[in-house]
């Protein structure tokens, strides 16, 4: 799927993460495979409930009961994370693999000072004294553009704005120069201008340090400007994948087509906005066959069977029996 001469940082193969609830088994992630390479950014796009966040949590090993990874391999630099003991996994978390969450209001503990929360992150992986750890934290804050980091270290999270908090979270994630960072919609809760700054910084970081990035979002316009590759998820499965340029210029799956059409843009002002009819189906009661069938205008009898991955064009895997092969949209 990807170019580049380096060995891939992360290879996910046939990942299945299921939640065993009282109401039944929820297949939040159902046979997902992708690859992320050093210094490149993979966008994971989908509506809420499509399983994109759970995919991220599965990689870093933070799926809470009643959910668990039931199948598949998560090869991080050749080691399978899915079969790692908890203590080994903990050593990787925060040092080699980091994660940044959606809501910066919630990710920092409100009753602990920033320095406490950053120093513990340093000391979790390196046996350094408090003062050294503190220096590291201060440098990291400076690097993400927080003014007077010495003072800010003594503050509590509620004394920061949302954008500043997210920078603190990013600085914390960067402390150990991880090889892979999973970003779970980190800019969704922020103002557009702040979002722009953070996107720019993350992209720069990724290029400079060769960090691989997984960027989870529902916002195609973010992906368009940021990512190298993109995977479109629907109801726990990847329905389309490819490079960002190819997928956005020539979407093959009707769902991707609908997503792109739903983005409001200047060119179509005055006309009614396009939309995908209906709602994301409940993962507990997916319709048999293609999960998108009930909302798809191309659906017919052939869609009653779950579509396998096909390659209608080179390097363009999709899950659809009626791909949109018309010339560019």
């Amino acid at each position: 799927m990807t170019g580049g001469s380096d060995a891939p940082t992360l290879v996910v193969e046939n990942l299945r993460t299921h939640f065993f609830t009282r109401a039944g088994v929820v297949k939040a992630v159902d046979d997902v495979s992708f690859t992320v390479t050093k210094g490149r950014i993979l966008g994971l796009v989908g509506e809420s409930g499509s399983g994109k966040s759970i995919t991220g949590f599965s990689i870093i090993g933070l799926v809470d009961p009643p959910g668990r990874v039931v199948e598949g391999r998560i090869l991080f630099q050749g080691r399978d994370l899915a079969s790692l003991a908890e203590n080994e996994a903990r050593k990787l978390r925060g040092s080699r693999i980091a994660m940044i969450f959606q809501d910066p209001m919630m990710t920092l503990n409100p009753v602990l000072r920033i320095d406490t929360q950053m120093i513990e992150a340093v000391q979790a992986h390196e046996p350094v004294d408090r003062e050294t750890a503190r220096q590291r934290a201060r440098d990291a804050l400076g690097k993400v553009g927080i003014p007077s980091p010495d003072e800010r270290l003594k503050a509590y999270p509620h004394q920061f704005s949302g954008g500043m908090r997210q920078r603190v979270a990013i600085a914390t994630a960067l402390l150990h120069r991880p090889e892979l960072i999973i970003c779970d919609e980190p800019t969704t809760a922020l103002d557009v201008t702040i979002q722009g700054q953070i996107l720019y910084e993350m992209q720069k970081l990724c290029r400079d340090s060769g960090t691989a990035l997984i960027w989870i979002t529902h916002d195609l316009s973010v992906i368009a400007g940021l990512a190298d590759e993109v995977c479109v998820m629907y109801a726990g499965r990847i329905v389309e994948a490819g490079t960002v340029d190819e997928v956005l210029d020539r979407p093959l799956h009707p769902y991707t087509l609908g997503l792109i059409g739903s983005v409001p843009s200047r060119n179509v002002r005055g006309r009614p906005l396009a939309q995908i009819p209906g709602m994301t189906p409940s993962l507990l009661s997916l319709p048999p066959g293609c999960a998108f069938r009930t909302r798809c205008e191309r659906a017919d009898a052939a869609c009653m069977e779950a579509p396998a991955i096909t390659l209608p064009l080179a390097n363009r895997p999709i899950r659809c029996v009626h791909p949109n092969l018309a010339a560019s949209s």
């Binding site: 969450f101 602990l112 406490t116 513990e120």
Partner: peptide, 29 residues
Amino acid sequence: LQDYVKFARAKGVSSRRIIGVHVFKNIMI
């Protein structure tokens, strides 16, 4: 269930410290 506990786990902080510091300080109030 809070995100800050999940974030602390994502940082690689040991569960003993998460319970003893992050959870403990919050329930003390």
